[in-house]
Amino acid sequence: MEKLITVDIADIKVSSDRDSTIVTYALGSCIAVIVYDPMQRCGGMIHYMLPLSTKSPEKAAWKPAMFADSGIPILFEKMYAQGCKKENIIVKVAGGGQLYDDKGTFNIGKRNYTVMRKMFWKNNIIIAAEDVGGAKSRTAKLRIADGRVTIKVKGVEAEL
């Protein structure tokens, strides 16, 4: 029986329960970073809202998963705490959508993506696959038994 573990907005979940699937819904401009270590059969996901916590240090202390800069490191720390190794972790990314907004006033999705890319670049982390951008709302799933990631957009589910 598949157990669903839901990642809320501004939330992180890590699991090594092989019967479980981690899922997050309605990723608009938010981003899900999905990580999986095939050696440990352990995976995790963060659903963050905003790029930087610099202007909201109190919020970041209380709810670090709200921001890319304070949340993504915690996701990796939680994986390491489960015995995962950085070199084995496969990273996939989904979300970062945007409205029809020619002037870019609402470019939070793009900012979310750019800040994450910079962080990964600095830390030598490669993104194995991504499904980002567009006027889309996504549902992301990670199956812990085998690390299969699927993204559902407009009712259609596809493997990432």
């Binding site: 907005i9 309605a26 990723l27 608009g28 959508g97 029809y100 006027a135 709302s137 407009k154």
Partner: peptide, 15 residues
């Protein structure tokens, strides 16, 4: 944008 109650229209809207 933040997925508070996404509907069929999703992000298909203009500012």
């Amino acid at each position: 944008m933040f997925g508070y109650g996404a509907d069929l229209g999703e992000l298909s809207r203009t500012i």
